[in-house]
Design a protein around this nucleic acid. Structure first.
Lengths: 199, 199
DNA sequence: AACACCATGTAAGCTGTTACATGATTAA
DNA sequence: TTAATCATGTAACAGCTTACATGGTGTT
């Protein structure tokens, strides 16, 4: 295939900038980044080792970060990455660009929409699971908010961390409420309508 | 690389089952599916032509769907796909499986979290855009709900369509409220703190 | 004349996860 | 003894989008 007018323009590699951005919070190793993403950002971001390590190498080659080796006793060496001024410039350029529209693929919701192909009981199973999960997440989010509030009372970053956690809370509450509405509307008439050919 | 114990187990191809599922709502062409996903499901699902057409061909080969050619005057022929009994079985198997955890990558939220690298004014720009967009989406969602309510008053599918749209509404309201909280907390002290080296 | 819509389809190629390798320490 | 955690890294490969091709009709 020949590209004459345009070079193949992939949706940009946001992992690269995400990792760069996390290094402005604190210098981190690849392992730290993974942990941070899993523990703190999992509500709206994810990264796998398979991306993190190659990207850190690439960023170092571009002089957007510098690596410092921290030797440890009893544990493997840590390669801690620090963002450079050049890295901050690159990051700033990305931060100011309009965000890529989110490509959402929420299997649970799609399956629920197609619930007409199942019995009501079958359709409710994943929603019960979702409800439990979201109620559990509610605790974790509240703890996170308390931690942020206690940590850095007046820092510039504080507001952004707090408000991001707040978004998580609001979405969490919305999902819990939805589950309750589903239970209220779908439970009562328990006619096991396993009708398939509905046209 | 040699896989001895396990075959490479990719995250499953949910597009295939999604497309199959949409054909239980109504027989559709590839073009219809794209339109439907964009117009109705865009809040929680997306599919591109590059996937839809090959998958429809694959599903036809597997006898999960059958194709019927609809000739049109002045417009290209439409290849309309109908789900088969075998297809319904395959779909049912997928619907009963627990959903893959959502892999979210919300650039807007991540960028907001990293707002400490920008001025408050700069950080607020995308949130103002988000707010406008969500207020606009609110209208569209309300219209969608009204349409579902009027269409099929008592059908089995009605409840699932309605409740899915309802989830969209609740999440939409949560996001709008979040934007307002952001404006309230971030606007007042308009000190243009373009501090970069925050450690 | 330019553009958008209808309609189907394919090749390029980046994106991103998973399953490995490796190896020491600590907890159950 | 088994498993988990710490820690870095790579190869395989499916997932998915984008940019094309093609061509008629209707709208601005």
């Amino acid at each position: 295939m020949i590209y004459i007018n345009l070079i193949y323009m992939p949706r940009q590699n946001s992992s690269k900038y995400a990792i760069l951005g996390l290094l402005t919070i604190e210098p981190m190793s690849g392992y730290d980044i993974r942990k941070f993403v899993q523990n703190v950002l999992s509500n709206f971001w994810n990264e796998s080792y398979g991306r993190i390590y190659p990207i850190l190498g690439q960023l170092a080659k571009e002089a957007s970060v510098t690596a410092r080796l921290h030797k440890q006793k009893g544990k493997p060496d840590r390669r801690v990455y620090h963002i450079t001024d050049r890295g901050r410039q690159v990051l700033r350029g990305w931060l100011l660009m309009p965000s890529q529209p989110i490509q959402i693929r929420n299997e649970t919701t799609l399956k629920f929409l197609l619930g007409g192909n199942l019995t009501i009981e079958e359709s409710l199973v994943p929603i019960q699971r979702l409800h439990e999960q979201q109620v559990h997440a509610k605790q974790a989010l509240a703890a996170q908010v308390r931690e942020i509030e206690s940590e850095t009372g007046g820092s510039a970053r504080y507001e952004y961390f707090f408000l991001t956690a707040r978004l998580g809370q609001l979405l969490n509450e919305a999902r819990i409420q939805w589950c309750q509405e589903v239970f209220a509307r779908l439970q009562p008439r328990k006619r096991s309508t396993k009708r398939r050919g509905n046209r």
